[in-house]
Design a protein around this nucleic acid. Structure first.
Length: 553
RNA sequence: GUCCCCGUAGCUCAGCUGGAUAGAGCGACUGCCUCCUAAGCAGUAGGCCGCCCGUUCGAAUCGGGCCGGGGACGCCA
C-alpha cells in the first residue's frame, strides 16, 4: 500500500522535475513516503517537496502543489491530497484500499508479513558459552537476541542454521577439571584445595556430590581430565536444559577441537603464509594485519609453538564460508568486538567475501544489588543465572526483558526489581490482548457468527477512528518485520506489538466501547474479521520474538 | 593514552536513511467493571533530548570538541 503511494508520488515528482529542471532528474533519488504521525496529516506523508526545494530553487509549497497537480492515480488509490506546513504532502487513502489489506491478512493467516527478502543461506552463531558454568544473564541476552534474529530471518525468507561454538580444550577447562576434582575429594572427606583461580561456584559442589554418589571413591586418584569430562558433560546438560526452557534449539554444536582434528587450523596457517602476510619475530609467528589497515599485527603462533585463539577463530570462520553460507552472523559481547576485525581481515586476505561476515554486538548486563555494582564472573561465582531469573519471572518475561531494548545499550539488572516488574510487565499487555481476542472469537462461535469468504465481508462498515487506527497499524507489520530482520533489531517487533496491543485494548475498552458482536449482523462480521486480523498479526509477531501467545489468561 | 558503545520524563528505554506539537512502559495522582477477560481503558503531572560549536530552510537525529558511565586494547579462549 505504501509502495503504491510511493510509486505514484515518485512518478509525479519526476514529471515536475522534468518540467522545471530536467538536468536534475538523475539526482532525484527515491522520495520518502512515511505513515503520518497524526490522523489530520492523512494516512501517509511525503516530504518530497522539501527535498526538492534546494536542487530546483523553488519554494517547497509551490513544488508540493505542482506534484499534487501531476499526480496520476488510475486505480483510485488516493482519496485526496493536502499540502500542509512548510510543504508536506499529506495523502488520504481511499478506504477501499484498507479493505484489501484485511482480505490479505485473512488469506495469508500466519504467513502474513513473511517473505520480502531473497532467501539466503544464513548462519547465526550465538550463545557459544564454554561449558565452565551455568548460563548467566549475559549469556541469556545473547541467547534471546540470537534466537529472535534467527526467527526474524526465517520469516523474511532465509534458510538459517543456528550454531553454538565451544571450546573444551585449553587451560580454562583444565582449571575446571581440577576444581571439580578438589570438590569431589572434599566430598569424600579428603583435605583438598581449589586451585588458585579455580571455579568457586556451588554448581561444581553439586556435580561433585553426584559423582561421589555414583562413583564412590573410585575416582579418588584419577587425574583432572576425567573430572574435566564429567564437569563438561554435566554443565552442558544444564546449559541445554536452560536453553530448552527458553525454547532455544541449535542445529549445530561446533567443537573447536574438530578444527585441529580435521587439519583446518594447519591449512589455514599455510594458506595465510601463502598470502605473504605472515612473518616471524621474537620466536613467534605473526600476521601482518597492520598492513590490512588495522591497529597492529597479531600473533598466530606463540613462541611455544601453540596457536593463539585468533588462528582457530580464523579457521572456524573460513569453515563457515566453505560450508556454503552466504551470510554469517556472530552474536558477540563487547569483549569480542576488538577481535572481530582481525578475523574478518584475515578472511578477506584469504579471498573470502568478508563483508558477508557480520557481527551483532550486545552490551553487558550489569548485575546490581542495591546501589552496588557486582562484577560478573563465572570463576568467582559472582553471577545471576538465567535459570534463577526464569524461575522467578518465567520464560516470556525473561525474553521480553532482553528484547525490549536495543542490543547495544547497557543495562543494569536487579533481580528484585525484575520480580517486581514481572507483575506488571508490558509483555502481559500483549499476551492479554491476544487472549481477549481469542475470547471474542470463542463467543462468536457460541453465537454462531461466522466469517464468510473475505471478499464478501462488508468492510465499509468499519468507519470509526479506532478501527482505522487498527488497520493502519496492521499495515505496518510487514515492513516492521522486514526492517527488524535487516537491521537485526528484534526490539522493533517487540515495540510494534506493544503498540498494536494498546490500540486493540483501547478499541474495545475506551469510551466508545466497541462491541464486536451485536444484533447488527453485517457489522459484527466486519468487526470479527478485523479482530481476527489483529489476532493473527499479534500471534504472528509474538512467534517472531519467541514469546507465547496464550488463548486464555 | 588509543579505539568502540552509551548519555532523551523520577526509573528503564523507543525515536527508522534530519522534517510538522519529542514517545512508550514502570512509578505518582484522578476517574472507569450488571458489558466479548480491569494483566485493561480515559485523563493529569513530569523534558535546557549531557554541554558547547558547526552543517542545513529545518538537528534528539549528521560532523567536531568537551564532560560523565561502560567495554576493549597480551605470545589470556
Amino acid at each position: 500500500m505504501r509502495e503504491q503511494v510511493q510509486k505514484l508520488l515518485q512518478e509525479a515528482a519526476e514529471r515536475v522535475v522534468r518540467e522545471i529542471h530536467p538536468s536534475q532528474l538523475e539526482r532525484l533519488g527515491p522520495i520518502q513516503v512515511v505513515p503520518a504521525k497524526q490522523p489530520e496529516y492523512g494516512d501517509f506523508t511525503s516530504n518530497a517537496a522539501l527535498m526538492l526545494a534546494g536542487p530546483l530553487q523553488r519554494p517547497p509549497r509551490e513544488l508540493a502543489a505542482r506534484i499534487q497537480a501531476m499526480l496520476r492515480d488510475p486505480d483510485g488509490v488516493i482519496e485526496r491530497v493536502e499540502i500542509a506546513g512548510p510543504g508536506f504532502i499529506n495523502i488520504f487513502l481511499a478506504h477501499a484500499r484498507w479493505h484489501d489489506l484485511l482480505i490479505r491478512i485473512l488469506r495469508e493467516q500466519e504467513r502474513f508479513g513473511f517473505g520480502g527478502d531473497p532467501g539466503e543461506r544464513v548462519q547465526v552463531e550465538f550463545v557459544s558459552a564454554n561449558p565452565t558454568g551455568p548460563l548467566t544473564i549475559g549469556h541469556g541476552r545473547n541467547a534471546v537476541l540470537g534466537d529472535a534474529i534467527v526467527r526474524l530471518l526465517e520469516a523474511t525468507g532465509h534458510e538459517v542454521t543456528r550454531e553454538y561454538y565451544f571450546n573444551d580444550g585449553g587451560r580454562q577447562m583444565r582449571v575446571l577439571g581440577e576444581s571439580l576434582r578438589a570438590r569431589y575429594q572434599q566430598q569424600l572427606g579428603r583435605e583438598a584445595e581449589l586451585p588458585e583461580d579455580g571455579y568457586q561456584g556451588e554448581y561444581l559442589c553439586e556435580i561433585a556430590r553426584t559423582l561421589a554418589r555414583e562413583q564412590g571413591d573410585a575416582w579418588l586418584d584419577a587425574d583432572w581430565t576425567r573430572f574435566k569430562q564429567a564437569a563438561e558433560g554435566a554443565i552442558f546438560k544444564d546449559i541445554r536444559k536452560t536453553l530448552e526452557r527458553l525454547e532455544i534449539h541449535f542445529d549445530v554444536y561446533f567443537n573447536e577441537h574438530t578444527l585441529y582434528a580435521d587439519g583446518h587450523v594447519e591449512t589455514t596457517l599455510s594458506d595465510l603464509r601463502a598470502t605473504g602476510l605472515v612473518y616471524e619475530a621474537d620466536g613467534a609467528v605473526w600476521l601482518r594485519t597492520k598492513e590490512l589497515g588495522l591497529e597492529r599485527d597479531r600473533v598466530l603462533l606463540k613462541s611455544s609453538g601453540e596457536p593463539t585463539y585468533l588462528l582457530p577463530d580464523i579457521a572456524y570462520h573460513r569453515e563457515k564460508f566453505r560450508r556454503g553460507f552466504e551470510r554469517i552472523i556472530d552474536v558477540l559481547g563487547p569483549d569480542h568486538i576488538e577481535q572481530f576485525p582481525y578475523v574478518k581481515a584475515a578472511l578477506g586476505a584469504l579471498g573470502y567475501p568478508a563483508d558477508d561476515l557480520e557481527v551483532v554486538v550486545y552490551q553487558w548486563v550489569n548485575l546490581r544489588r542495591g546501589t552496588e555494582l557486582v562484577k560478573m564472573s563465572t570463576r568467582a561465582a559472582s553471577f545471576v543465572t538465567v535459570d534463577e531469573v526464569v524461575d522467578e519471572v518465567g520464560a516470556d518475561v525473561f525474553r521480553f526483558f532482553m528484547l525490549e531494548r536495543r542490543a547495544d545499550t547497557h543495562f543494569d539488572f536487579d533481580l528484585d526489581l525484575a520480580k517486581e516488574r514481572s507483575e506488571r510487565n508490558p509483555v502481559f499487555k500483549i499476551q492479554y490482548a491476544h487472549a481477549r481476542l481469542c475470547s471474542i472469537e470463542r463467543v462468536a462461535v457460541e453465537r454462531e457468527v461466522e466469517l464468510p469468504e473475505p471478499e464478501d465481508i462488508c468492510f465499509a462498515r468499519l468507519q470509526s477512528p479506532q478501527e482505522l487506527e487498527l488497520v493502519k497499524r496492521l499495515e505496518r507489520y510487514p515492513e516492521t518485520l522486514l526492517h527488524a530482520a535487516r537491521a537485526r533489531e528484534p526490539q522493533e517487533v517487540a515495540r510494534y506489538l506493544l503498540a498494536l496491543a494498546t490500540a486493540f485494548h483501547s478499541y474495545v475498552s475506551d469510551s466508545t466501547r466497541h462491541r464486536v458482536l451485536s444484533d447488527d449482523k453485517e457489522l459484527s462480521v466486519a468487526r470479527l474479521a478485523l479482530v481476527r486480523a489483529v489476532r493473527i498479526t499479534l500471534g504472528n509477531g509474538l512467534g517472531r520474538v519467541g514469546i507465547s501467545a496464550p488463548e486464555r489468561m
